[in-house]
Amino acid sequence: MTADVFEPLATLEGVGSAARAARDAVDVLLRDRGLRKVGSDMTTEALLRGAHASAALAGSQETLEQVRRGATDPRAAGAVRMTGELMSLAPQSNKTPVQVWTRLHQLAAAELGGEDQLGHLRTSREPLPDDIPGLPEAPGADEMWERLHGLARALSGPTSAPGIVVAAIVHAELAVLRPFPTANGLVARAAERALLVARGIDPVSVTVPELGHFELAGSYAQGLRDYAAGGLTGVRDWLLRSCEVVALGAERSPLNISAQQGK
């Protein structure tokens, strides 16, 4: 049986209560798990806003309206492409996560590299990727493969940890490991969102966690650096930040925007 590697992290100081508060923020949005009726237009809008925010974190200069009209920046275009399959990929995140991540990379990086690089997990014969500013050097391919497949095994096993914690760890691991030649940040953030859907936190995907990461961009790279340092304090701080991101993502949902506009 695969060990539950997520549960001990969920018991770090403050994490459990922060995860419950973040879940409560989503539940209020979805009317206390009654799963407020949500049209596909709201899911589409939330995914679009998330794609724009994730691309902006990756360095895109395009505005939300430009992305809405049809992104030309390759990072924004890739982020939008991922939204087209995210809801169908999400259920597989718990069963075949590596295949989900490689598919996300195929979509995200279609304009960022050669066709032979799409969905390609890097090897020791290739240079280390450096596509997320502010992070320490990516680990070598051997360590990356070991950790990536260990993460996949953990995801396919049972855990008592909140879905928010699981999604946050996957985001951080993919960002720190940078398993692909390009677009690792886009993939990591999309993988987090997919798990929030798959683990029942936001099954209709109307929150915008990427916008939470963007609004807290000043602590994004530092949070990942602290996580990468390997200490429990860094992991705890990343998890606390991720809980704040989820709560912010609920606040920035288009459902709330529509309500505020009286629609």
Rank of each mutant, 00 (worst) to 15 (best):
S54D: 15
F214W: 08
G262Y: 04
G78C: 04
G157L: 03
A188N: 09
V245W: 01
S242K: 00
L248H: 00
V166Y: 01
L151T: 01
V206L: 07
P209W: 02
A250S: 11
R189V: 12
A191E: 03
S219P: 00
R147P: 01
L12H: 13
S242M: 02
E173F: 06
E111M: 01
A90V: 06
G200T: 03
A217S: 14
G234P: 11
P203G: 09
L57Q: 13
D237K: 05
A51I: 10
L35I: 10
L177D: 09
V187Q: 08
R236K: 12
A90G: 08
I164N: 05
T233N: 13
L248N: 00
S124I: 10
A79D: 12
P8Q: 10
V197T: 07
D142N: 09
S17P: 04
L118C: 02
Q61A: 15
A25W: 04
E13A: 15
D24P: 00
S156T: 09
A3Y: 08
V98Y: 02
P158Y: 00
M87T: 12
Q106C: 08
T123I: 10
G70Y: 04
A110D: 06
A161G: 06
V67I: 14
T63V: 10
P254R: 00
R20E: 14
F214E: 14
E244D: 03
N256R: 13
E7S: 15
A190P: 01
S156Y: 00
Q117V: 09
I132T: 11
L57P: 08
D27W: 01
R122P: 14
E215L: 13
G140K: 12
A90W: 10
D131M: 06
Q117G: 02
G59T: 14
R20S: 10
L135K: 13
R193P: 00
A228L: 11
I164W: 05
G70F: 04
V166P: 04
R122V: 13
T11S: 15
P254E: 01
L104P: 02
L107Y: 02
V38R: 08
R20Q: 15
K263L: 12
V197C: 06
A3G: 08
A51H: 09
A221C: 14
A221W: 12
L155E: 02
H120S: 06
F180G: 11
I164T: 05
R225G: 11
A55N: 15
S88I: 12
A168L: 07
P127A: 11
L195C: 01
P209Y: 04
L148N: 07
E65C: 02
G16V: 08
A190G: 04
Y220G: 06
R153D: 15
A194P: 03
H105Q: 05
A229C: 11
I257T: 11
A191P: 02
A71E: 10
G114E: 12
V67G: 14
Q260C: 03
L48R: 13
L118T: 06
L121T: 05
P162D: 13
P181C: 05
G113Q: 06
E173A: 09
L211Q: 14
L239G: 10
V187N: 08
Q260N: 11
G114K: 08
P162R: 07
F6T: 05
S258L: 09
G14V: 11
G185Y: 06
L29Y: 02
